[in-house]
Every structure is written in C-alpha cells, then in structure tokens.
Design a binder for these strands. Structure first.
Lengths: 334, 334
DNA sequence: CCCAACTTCTGCAACGATGTATGGCAGCAA
DNA sequence: TTGCTGCCATACATCGTTGCAGAAGTTGGG
C-alpha cells in the first residue's frame, strides 16, 4: 500500500487535516509543526494521491486535445508543443484522435473523455458550432485552428485565408496563372480547407485571373492523396503551371509525383504548401510554404484554456486569437 | 451537479449497490430489475464517474507512454497506432515526453505520472536496467524498441542489429565500400543507435571490408543534424560513397544536404535510412530504408502490457518480442 | 412442513483527499 | 475575573464508487 496522509499525520503526531493544511499552504501553521510534517513526508516518501484529490476537488489537471490524427506531422508537432506548454503550467494533455469521424468528435465533447479533463482543445472537422453548443457541458472549451468564428466559443487560429491569398499572390507574381489546388474538402462543415481555398480565389480575383474549377482537386490530406491528385490532373490533361497543396504533406506528395513523371519543379510547375512542417525545409527541392506561427498558437491556446479553467478571464466571452504567418519562399516556387 | 448512482437508484427504486451490480455485470440480478435500472440510467443520462471508480478500484484504465519527442515522425506514428490499439481494448494512452533527459525518465517511473497509469510503455534512453529496476514500483512495465535485454523486464523491439546488417549488406552488394554512418550515440547507455551501429560493423566484417572510425558521425536524430553531419564529412574531405542514416530523418537531412551541394544521389553517393516513415516513400529520390514492423510492435506491446495489467500472463517473466523487418529498396540506394 | 441451498438485493465501510465548523489556547482590554 | 480577538489544530462530513457481509426471498428435497 502506498503511504497516505494518515500515515504522515501519525508519524508527525498531528491530525490528518494539519497535513492537508501544510500541503495546501494554509496560512496559520506554527513553523515547528510545519517542519515536523514536512520531515515526516520526506521520511515516508509520501506522494499525494491524485485520484483522491481529483474526486474531492473535481479537477484533474489534465487538458483534452482532440484532433484527427496524431501521426500527421503538423498535428504531431502541435501536440508536442502543446504538451510542453501545458507542462510548464502544471497540466498534462490527453490526446484523442477523431479520425475526422463525427461520432468520435461528439463523444469527445460529452463522453468519458470530457470527464477526465478540466478543459478541451478541440479541432472540429465534422461538426458545426450549433452541434458543439448543444452538446457542450460546463467545462471550458477552446477551438483550435479552424474557422468556426462564433461568439459563443474561444478560438485560436491562424490567418488561413490571408496566408493562402499571400501565397497565391506570390505564385501569380512569379508568372504562374494556372494554379491547381489540391486537397479541397467540399463535404466538410468546418475546416481550414475552405478558408484556404477562399484565400486562393480572392488572390485570383484581385489579380484578375479567372477561376477554373477544373484546377481544384478534392482529396484527404495525406501524401498519397497529393500524389494521386496530381496524377489525376496530368491524366485528365488539365493544363497547370503551379500546384498549391492545401497543406505540406499534400504538396510533398504532389512534388514527388511530378518529379517521378519527369515534370521539372519549379521550371515546369511550381509547388507550394501550407504549414511549414520540418520536412518542408529539407525536401528536394525545398518547399515554398506558409509558416503559421505554431509556437504562438500553442502558447496562446494553452494559456487561454488554462486561464478559463482557473477562472481567470471569466468575464470575456468568445475570445478570438489569430496568430501571424510568414511566407517561406524556397526552391519549389521561388 | 452530475447524475450519480444514487439518483439512478432512487429513480429505479433499488439500492445504490444494485445499480453498481448492474453496471458491473453481477450475475444474480432479475432481468426485470436490470431493465428498470438500465431504463433509469438512460432516462437520467447517467455516466459513471471515472475518478471515483479509479479511487475505489485503484485502476485508471490509462497507460503511460514515455518517449523522447512526440514531434519526431517515427514516434508520432507509433504513438498514434498505440493509442488506437489501446482504444480497442478500452484503454487510453497518456504521453510523456522525456526529451532524452534522465531526470524526466526517472520521474516517469515513479512520480505522479506513474500514479495516473495502470502500466507503462517505456523507451529508456538515458537510464539503464539497474536504475529502472531500482526505481520501479509494482505496476507493469513494458520496454519499447530499445536494447535493454534484461530478464527482469518485458521488451518489445525490432531487430535493430539484424536489419542494420541487412541494409549495410545491400549497400556493400551494390558496390559501396565507404559507407558513412550518421547519428551514432556514443554517450547513450541504452538505445537503438548502438545496436544499429553494431549491425553495420558485423556486415562490414562479414564482407571483409575494414571499419573506418572516420566514417562515423555522432549526432542527435533530427533532420538538421543529418544535414550538418554530411556537411561535416564533406568539409573534412572524408571519402565516402554511401550514407547510412541511423534513422530516416537523419538520412533525409543528409540527402538534402548532398543534393544542395551538387552530389548526385544515388550516382555519387547512395543514401539509406531506418524506420520507413511515410515521408521516406515520397522523398525525391525515394529513400531506401528498413521497415521495422511498426504495426506489429504497436499491437504486441499494447497487448502484452494490458495482459500484464489485467493479470493475464502473470507467470512468465521478462517476455521478449522482436518484430520482423523488411528492407525497402528504393531510388536513393538501389 | 422444515431446513438447506440457492438467488436476489441491501447496508455499511472504505478508497484518500479537502471544506466546514469548531475547539482550545494565548494575549489583551475592560 | 470576564469577554473578546487572533492563531493553531482537530473532528466530521463529503466526493461517487465498489468490496464485503449478510438479509430477505425463493426453490426443492426429504
């Protein structure tokens, strides 16, 4: 059996509650008593039982993180940073992979997962604001990286549209006018794909370049999809001189397929992505992309969520944070 | 306040304990009673309080996963698979990033992290078997992917040495005799680096090729280290016709640096890695590497750990599982 | 018809911590 | 002395669940 407060209390010759008071920095304790208790704790190697503390206090000091797939580089890096940021403030992060399945997203909002956490960082892909509001309990929720701009919810996100427009403008400025977009998500009720596609269209409009639906390839956001999408465009004989992958792995998949087929990058076709994952810098050719300020997103979202959990910022509702972005011009689209 | 068992009991007109019995599939309950309780549960939307259950039962149904860095592609993919495997058996996985810091590894073995989990999947990098044995509590522990072959501990790993030898043999057979190795860890007390390096040396010995220490570049396992290591070799004028990155990201970093400097791959220098991360297949040129049977590792390690936690396999001690591997020959080292 | 054996259900205590209420004791003013 | 205030420590109840022991109710054999 583990050492309990009771054992410490006996060893120190005080009551159970006095031990609790020492641990919780209660004001009125005689220094001598405090010392005796602390000695007993050290001697017995006592460690507070977190489960019992949770039951009594209703807090777990864990935060939930709901995302589609931890194995995707962007989310892996984000999760890693979020965990480190949480750790600095004394919290842990419990991850739930939704696989972009609506049921799993719903369960994360109300099921046992919710119970285990004091607050939630949530990347909704398949469910919308009203659904979230309907299922949401009383615990704090911060939406992450997506486009649900709803006054009911806190949101930490990146400038998806603006950044996509900047990237598209860069491609246009370099003389590309037939820019294929890979990774559109026409089905999705909430997500970055739509915002980035909007940014693309805005940049086209501003430049007076007509929008051609034939250039838009819908697919999931994995490397093989990117490769398949480019293969499809080439086989359908679609004419394009640039590829905008709505995230980096798509762009890298596309890049690979182009090179295999003897299409020169960037000479024949320029390629650009979005996310600036570590891999982008080391691809050959290195990938032009958008760096979305992930460090800022991680810090701000964890900070905001913990503030909510601890009752700071209780007043303000639906705080919206947009991290800055940077256009990283590299070899694939100079 | 949330709905408790007491509320359900009152609604169903039975005692608290009967509700508990229904939830725990106690044998002797009249079907009618069971039905009433289940109806009440459904009507009130009762959900068991996991914290209270944990306090009472001493189990959390969470497993701990200790690894150096979740943002590295190999670990991200592994963590994702482990979580899915655990989820299928009704467990969650809580991740702790050690950053390869000995203190963090120690704390994971005995600190609060341990309390939150029923068992541990542990990737020791800085601490050895005796240290683990000394600090280990009573909860099950399965070592993961490393070389601590100790009868005291369960271990699920890959054939590091054998696979590295097979890869080296392949490079030798293709006519490369000056094979640089990137990512050696001379400081590390436990880890894959040493085993893979051993495999490399064995293959050299078998082929009668002399071992040249000048070809061994020690560094951490990130892309930029791989690039820097190759740059170092080139600048020191070391003569080599192949690069074996002890993992894929090192090899990809090296590949990038070589291409930038105008070294042709594979014509001038062949490049090979280890892990077969998704990215390897889509690199340009695609990366020759070792596929370590990650699915098998994930399934076996979670399965073994949960069996230990639930008291199955209680007899056998120090079970050692080695997953099979495959040599993936691609463009970078045909 | 009674006792044994089984089935079905219940009450109490416990897991290990914290909040509330309160009991002493010292010091000080009246 | 009495009464008050401020400091320090304690007892008890409580969070929501499950283990243990046992109390009813039911069945069946003799």
């Amino acid at each position: 059996m583990a050492v309990t407060m009771n054992d410490v209390a006996k060893a120190a010759g005080v009551s159970l509650k006095t031990v609790s008071n020492v641990l919780n920095d209660y004001e009125f304790i005689r220094p001598a008593t405090k010392q005796r208790v602390e000695d007993a704790i050290a001697e017995l190697g006592y460690e507070a039982n977190l489960t019992a503390r949770s039951l009594r206090s209703g807090k777990t000091r864990m935060l939930g993180l709901v995302l589609s797939d931890l194995s995707s580089p962007y989310y892996a890096e984000l999760a890693s940073r979020l965990m480190k940021a949480a750790s600095r403030r004394g919290y842990r992060v419990l991850v739930e992979q939704s696989d972009a399945v609506a049921d799993v997203e719903l369960n994360a909002l109300q099921g046992p997962f919710r119970q285990l956490t004091d607050g939630l960082l949530f990347t909704p892909l398949m469910i919308d604001a009203d659904t979230i509001a309907a299922r949401l309990g009383k615990k704090p929720l911060v939406l992450l990286g997506e486009h649900i701009l709803d006054p009911r919810f806190d949101l930490v996100t990146m400038k998806n549209g603006e950044a996509a427009a900047a990237l598209t403008a860069h491609l246009l400025a370099s003389g590309r006018h037939r820019i294929a977009v890979i990774g559109a998500h026409p089905e999705e009720s909430a997500g970055s794909a739509g915002l980035r596609l909007n940014g693309y269209r805005e940049a086209l409009d501003r430049a007076g370049v007509p929008f051609d639906p034939a250039l838009i390839a819908p697919c999931e956001w994995r490397r093989d999809n990117g490769a398949a999408a480019v293969a499809g465009l080439l086989e359908r004989g679609v004419d394009f001189d640039a590829v905008f992958g709505l995230n980096d792995v798509l762009a890298l998949g596309a890049l690979h397929e182009l090179l295999i087929r003897g299409v020169r990058v960037p000479q024949d076709v320029a390629v650009a992505g979005f996310d600036d994952i570590d891999e982008a810098r080391f691809a050959s050719p290195s990938l032009t992309t958008i760096s979305p300020g992930m460090e800022e997103i991680a810090e701000r979202s964890i900070g905001l969520l913990i503030d909510r959990v601890e009752g700071v910022e209780a007043g303000s509702q639906g705080l919206h944070v947009e991290a800055g972005f940077q256009l990283k011009i590299r070899e694939s689209a100079p």
